[in-house]
Every structure is written in structure tokens, then in C-alpha cells.
Design a protein around this nucleic acid. Structure first.
Lengths: 199, 199
DNA sequence: CGAGGAAGTTACCTGTGTCAACATGCAAGT
DNA sequence: ACTTGCATGTTGACACAGGTAACTTCCTCG
């Protein structure tokens, strides 16, 4: 007969894991302190020993989601092209954009957590490879390989990020959520083309 | 001494107005049935005679917000250019994009309500001039005046909408919420340029 | 004029976040 | 070894939200 020890041992991590699970299942609103505690098998108020309030837990989950997000993006970029020429740089750039949308569609709950900016400053996980940083690297590559001019570098993050993030939003629960996949793909391709040619 | 009549007379409208006020003040999450009823001076359960549940009220507010959104956009478009030439069409197109961001920044709560797509199908107000329809008209103009080719017309809504919507999101509570206005303006200008030249 | 239904009200339920007071057990200091 | 202290969990309570059920008021229409 296994009896639970009074002290959990690593409750903070367990709560973050449970809350991340909740977020992955049904989005940020589904992250409820009491349910996370329940799943960990601990009294609801135990959470307050590790998080000032619900928002603090949400911030931790957001950091976790951001880390997963960055991992997927890094994987997709690495899997796209390895050269140092124009084509490879362009391919990696496109891969980063596609990874953004892929994460949003395959992990909608976590994506929304990662983008829950209204939570305020989120202390990033130590191992995070931030998507924004990866985008910046892609853009630097585009400049260094001569795909785009240095003059265009300045606001390129904003333009690329806006377009891809907006598309992800439209797909998530927006108007594009009800269009067939092939049409959605054409939309994404067009968004990426506009960014790459306009940038 | 003015005594409240037992029957309000137009409770549905009054509740929508109060709820819209709440949304305008602090966003969708601040739209709480009981508070709306309180402001109207009616018992909280009276709302259920007019709305099946909270979401139904939110849908009504969303429709209201969308109407306001469309009005601003129409105003800005009308105020930008009136001709039928390329330049005028392009100016109106840009004005529609700027109006999108203007509404998002000046009415963040209502903007979020208008974009609360997860609410499901929202019955539009009768008088609504839907932003999406106005965008389509702008794009049709760009084609008919020869600014863009008909071949590019197909997915142009998606590209334009994605870019501008994404930018609005980044500005609302995203990373761009903390950058100075002039830098924000340069970002917006770049987004609009990329769309116009890439499309 | 009086029956019936629409519109509001009161009472109550569950569930959530949060605070306060109490219980437990590990670890350090004598 | 014993005790004392503090981090960690627990129980209990409160306020407030959405939602259901049963009751009341009052307008409308035959």
C-alpha cells in the first residue's frame, strides 16, 4: 500500500507539468489551479507555496510552451537546408515561418499560452531557443547571403512576424479554421511569398 | 421618487450596451453577466430571458463591436481618396489597413471582442459594414485599376488580413506594446509596404 | 375581465481564486 | 539525541462567477 508522503518533493515542477497538460488540451482558460493540484494529487492550496497566484502559474506554463515552440522551430529549420547560399537561407527562412504555423495548428493550446503576452514578463526557461531569436538569425542570413538588402533588415522582423502570426490566428479559431486544408496551404504559401518578395 | 417599473422595456438592448461598455473598458474577460445586469439595475437572472448564456451575450457584443469596427474603417477609407485611378485605389487600400490597426489600438477591448472568433457564429448587426467586405472591395479596386494582377487576387485577402491582423496583435499586448510610437509607426509602414509590393 | 404567457425576482447549486489558521516533517544547532 | 524553526501541505472559509428552478408581476388579448 503506497501512501503518499506529506511532502511531494517537486511539487512546483509537477504543477507546471499538469497545468501545461491542461493548456495543451483546452487552452489557457482551461488552466485552473485547483484542477492542476487535483491531478498532482495535492490539496488545492499547496500551489500557493510555489506560485503567488494563478497568473504566476500561467507564466510558468507560458515559458514551458515557448520552449517547446522554439524546439519545433529549430528542428524544422535544421531539417530544411544546411548550406550557406541564398537558396539555403531562403529555405530556412520559409521553414521558420512554416514551423510557426505548424506549432500553432498542432499545439493550439500551447501556442496560445506562448502568445499570452498579457501575462506580463515571463521568465524564460533556461534552455529556451526563442522563436523570435531564430527569426532574427534567419533574417541576418538573408542579408549576409544577399537575398535582401541591409536597408530592408530594420523592420523585417515586424513584417515577417506580423504576417505569420496573423495567419496563425486566422487559422486557429478565425475564419480560416473552416476552410479545407489545401486552400489553407495556398493561403500560407501566399503569405510566405508576399513576405519573402516584399521584404 | 422615481420607482423602477417591473418591466424594463428594452432590457436586451440595455444589457448589450452595458456589456459593450464592459468590453470596451477591460476586454472580453471583463464582460460578466452579473455586472452588466447590475449596471442596468436589474437582477442578474433577468439576463437569461434574453440570452441563453454568457456566450450569447458575448456574441451580441461581438456583433456590436464589429459594427463599430466597420464604421471606423468606412470613415477612414472615405476620408483618404475619392478617385478611380491607381493612386486613389492604393490610398484607400492603405487607409483600410491603417484603420484596422487604429481600431485595434484605440478600442482594444472592442477589437478583441470583434475578433473573438471562438464564440462561434455571430449573427451580424443589420447595419454592419463588415471590415472583411471592405477589404475585398479595396482589393477588387486594386485589380480593376491595374495596381495588382488578377492572378494575385485569389489569396490577397488572406495575405493582407494576416499581416495587418498580426501587427495589431503584436501591438495590442504583444512585444510591440512597449516600443515608442514612432518605431511602431515605422513597423506599420513596413508591414503595409510589404503587403502592397508583395501582393 | 380574466386567463396565459412574457419578463423579472429570489433562492440555491457548483466551481474558482484567494486568504487565514493549522498541521507536518525535514534539517540544523546545541 | 532532542528541540526548535521554517518550508511545505492541509483544512476551512469567503467572495464572486455562471447557471437552474420555482415563484411573482404585469401586459395582452380573446
Amino acid at each position: 500500500m503506497q501512501v503518499m508522503p506529506y511532502h511531494h518533493g517537486n511539487l512546483r515542477e509537477a504543477l507546471i507539468a499538469a497545468a501545461t497538460q491542461l493548456a495543451a488540451e483546452h487552452g489557457p482558460d482551461a488552466v485552473v489551479l485547483r484542477e492542476a493540484a487535483r491531478r498532482v494529487g495535492v490539496s488545492h492550496n499547496a500551489a500557493y507555496r510555489h506560485f503567488a497566484d494563478r497568473d504566476a502559474l500561467l507564466r510558468a506554463v507560458s515559458a514551458r510552451a515557448m520552449t517547446e515552440f522554439g524546439q519545433l522551430m529549430a528542428t524544422r529549420i535544421a531539417g530544411s537546408a544546411t548550406g550557406h547560399d541564398k537558396d539555403a537561407a531562403a529555405a530556412r527562412f520559409e521553414a521558420s515561418g512554416r514551423a510557426y504555423v505548424e506549432f500553432a495548428t498542432t499545439h493550439p493550446g500551447l501556442f496560445r499560452m506562448a502568445c499570452a503576452w498579457s501575462l506580463g514578463d515571463v521568465a524564460p526557461d533556461a534552455a529556451v531557443n526563442h522563436p523570435y531569436a531564430q527569426l532574427s538569425e534567419r533574417l541576418d542570413e538573408l542579408v549576409s547571403t544577399g537575398v535582401i538588402t541591409p536597408a530592408r533588415r530594420q523592420n523585417a522582423e515586424i513584417a515577417a512576424w506580423s504576417a505569420v502570426h496573423g495567419f496563425a490566428m486566422l487559422v486557429l479559431d478565425g475564419p480560416l479554421s473552416v476552410v479545407p486544408p489545401d486552400e489553407r496551404e495556398r493561403g500560407l504559401a501566399e503569405v510566405l511569398r508576399v513576405v519573402r518578395e516584399g521584404i
